[in-house]
Simulated assay, not measured.
Amino acid sequence: MVKGKTTNGLMRHLREIHGISISGSKNKKDLLNMGYYHGYKGYRFIGNSQNRIPYTKFEEVVSVHQFDANLKSILYPNIMLIETAIKNYTLDTLIGIGPADFDYAFSYLLNDYKKHSVGNRDYRDKMKKRLDLRNKINEAISYNYSDNKAVIQHFFHNNKQVPLWAIFEVISLGVFGFFIQCLNEDTRIAIAKDLKLHSTAHNQNGRLLEDMVFLIKDLRNAVAHNAVVFDCRFKKASPPARLKEYLQSETGVSDINFDNIVDYFTITIFLLKKLGIPRIDLRRIVKKLSIESERLRNSIPIPVHTSIMGSDFRRKIEQMLRYI
């Protein structure tokens, strides 16, 4: 039998074990609202559990938790817009090439493996990814049919193939990234050009779009599922150098490495600008980030704020505004 602690017991635990000043009804209500495990335990470190934040007051924990929540409220609608738009641009390009069904795309567009000799390592690797993609899409269709998703059931009940636009509605951003990855080079470049992302210097093989999709999908999932985002712990792998170099060249924001959340705002602003979002709206996003950062700075020790935002935060904000 597992014996838990009451909220009063958790407050005593924070005082006696962690040296955090916490008492009174206001602190108790804040702890209940944020939760000990999702709240304190999720926000007691930066990046990894060894990099503990030296909290002395519970109000500092609440400030970091609120900062994280506010970041997600800024990012959520914009990341969702980017996901929808990129899928729609891709669909528009593919429809201009041929029939809007998966069988056609699978046979004639999702064939990047063909540029390699039959049976060699690259050929087998890309063929496996292509076959895995088909399985993932079939799984998504099956799941959404069983889940009574009208957009999928309609086509089955009318004995029709499920078109690409319906497939894009039900696959995750990660699976969509694999879809882009499996496209042949000509098709990838055509989509990149339609999104104004093609660069002869940085995007000669049309790979930058998939790089961006794989990068933002981790952020998207963290935001959508209310995971911690302020310290970028959602990042599963370091983005390729070609993407960092391209973003730095295009935006004028230097030292992009995606170790701090400001860099994720940079790629968000970059993509929104490419999608034609008005400058006034882009400036508003950057201003909100600046306000939240300053509010946090006034609520926690300066060294902790610097560890979270990076020592170059203000410079990057200025560079981002110049880009806009």
Rank of each mutant, 00 (worst) to 15 (best):
I308P: 04
M127D: 00
I137Q: 04
R297G: 13
Y36R: 07
F102T: 01
R15D: 05
W165D: 12
K29D: 10
S290F: 05
D68E: 10
N70S: 12
H38Q: 14
P163H: 11
Q66I: 06
T6D: 07
I74N: 04
V61Q: 02
E185G: 04
L243R: 02
K57M: 11
Y37S: 10
F168I: 08
Y43L: 10
T6N: 10
K72N: 04
D231A: 10
N70D: 13
D103I: 10
L109Q: 11
K3V: 12
V170F: 07
D125M: 12
V61G: 06
N226Q: 12
D259W: 01
R315W: 03
F156W: 12
T90I: 03
L110N: 01
I302W: 09
G276V: 05
H157P: 00
M34I: 13
A150L: 14
D263F: 09
H198S: 09
S146T: 03
N158V: 09
R12P: 00
K114Q: 13
S299T: 08
I74P: 01
F58W: 08
N78V: 01
E83V: 10
F179L: 15
R314D: 15
Y89R: 08
M320V: 02
K136F: 15
A222H: 07
G310F: 07
L10W: 03
G42R: 07
L296V: 09
N184V: 05
L208Y: 03
D147Y: 11
K244Y: 00
N70H: 04
I280A: 11
A140N: 11
N158L: 12
E169Q: 12
F230Q: 02
Y108P: 00
P163K: 11
C232P: 01
D101K: 07
I189K: 14
P240H: 10
V64P: 06
K136L: 15
Y264Q: 07
N298I: 01
K244E: 09
L271R: 04
Y89H: 14
K115S: 12
L183P: 02
M212E: 09
R297C: 15
K244P: 00
A201N: 09
D125W: 05
R283H: 08
F178R: 09
K196E: 13
L243E: 01
P239W: 04
S293R: 13
A166G: 10
S290Y: 06
L71A: 03
L94Y: 03
E210S: 14
A105E: 03
K128W: 05
N70I: 00
F265Y: 14
L272K: 01
H116P: 01
L10T: 02
L321H: 02
V61M: 09
V229S: 12
I302L: 15
S299P: 09
Y264N: 14
A85T: 05
I256H: 01
P99E: 05
S107W: 00
Y323P: 06
Y145G: 05
R121L: 08
K114C: 08
I324P: 00
V170R: 07
E185M: 13
P240C: 06
Q204P: 00
A241D: 11
K29M: 09
L71G: 04
I261W: 02
V304W: 03
D218G: 10
V262G: 06
A100T: 02
Y123H: 13
G174E: 12
Q248V: 06
R297F: 12
V61P: 06
G9N: 02
N8P: 00
S107L: 11
S172F: 01
R314E: 15
E294M: 11
L75Y: 10
I17Y: 04
P54M: 11
S107A: 14
K126N: 14
S249E: 12
